[in-house]
Amino acid sequence: MAYKNPQQKFQGKIKEVVLGEGLKLGGESVLPFYSFDGDIGNTPKVGMEVWDIPPVDWPEGLMNIIKDVADDPAKWAKFYTEKYNPDFITLRFIGANPDTLNRSPEECAEIAKKVAKNVDVPLVIAGCDSNEKNARIFTKVAEALPNKNYAFLSAVEGNYKEVGAAVGLAYGNLVVAESSVDLNLAKQLNILLTQLGVKPERMLMNPGVSSVGYGFEYVITTLDRIKLAALEQNDTILQVPIIMPVSFETWKVKESVASKEDAPEWGDREERGIAMEVSTAVGVLTAGANAVILRHPRSLDVVRGFINEMVN
């Protein structure tokens, strides 16, 4: 008997969503990187994380790279785009947390405007720890940057009405629906946003991410199930591209934070952090993420290289 490759052909297809002016996400009708089965759609995209305040606990090498720009997010973002060429910039409002600067939504909007003016890649706007405050921040930022197709991370069960209405409906940007590692929750939130009037072509989702080693099997299984439901069962509600803020998780865990004194045998902290970030990013890309957010330029370089090798 001669050998014949098996194939998994699906009827479903992930929607193509445009971030900014022309950065296309999704569009695939096969499992991630299964180009031998069919159309893998747009290559996964990689963005970099910029904060509205200078970070304090980032690893030394990275602090050195950004030391001249870290106190000005607009300069910082420009520096990144020129030097590393990320697909997008994620502007994260850590300074809006009550335990940092407790920045107002108006201030956030000012900053976002400056950053947007300074770069020619799309922005992904991320908030602080409070969902209630994020609704107010996102409203102001979306109002200041209308019809830009920027993505807002995220609308959750508790604030989707405000976020959806402002970001998605009133001011023409993209809503990221964030749920907690469960297919049904992801589906429910997508339905709620659609019922509010947000068009599926103007939505992304984040069904929940963690670092490798920290409940990551649930993340992978949720991604597997979502992609199979979207492709195999043609569940249109779940045919939304997925974006995951990998760096928000991986730089918190022990493997990335333990100092040399804490774990003398473990070696360089920065390398460990990059490795955790790279492995987590590749792990979710292989299970279905269409875009990931990273922190370290070296990680960006590696993950980019990885994606290129897998698609070309």
Binding site: E217, E255, R272
Partner: peptide, 20 residues
């Protein structure tokens, strides 16, 4: 191999091979 490679890989394997 060194710890930077081992820490994510062994952690990932431990996760993926737990019984769901």
């Amino acid at each position: 191999i060194d710890y930077s490679i081992a820490l994510p890989l062994f952690a990932l394997r431990q996760n993926i091979y737990t019984d769901p």
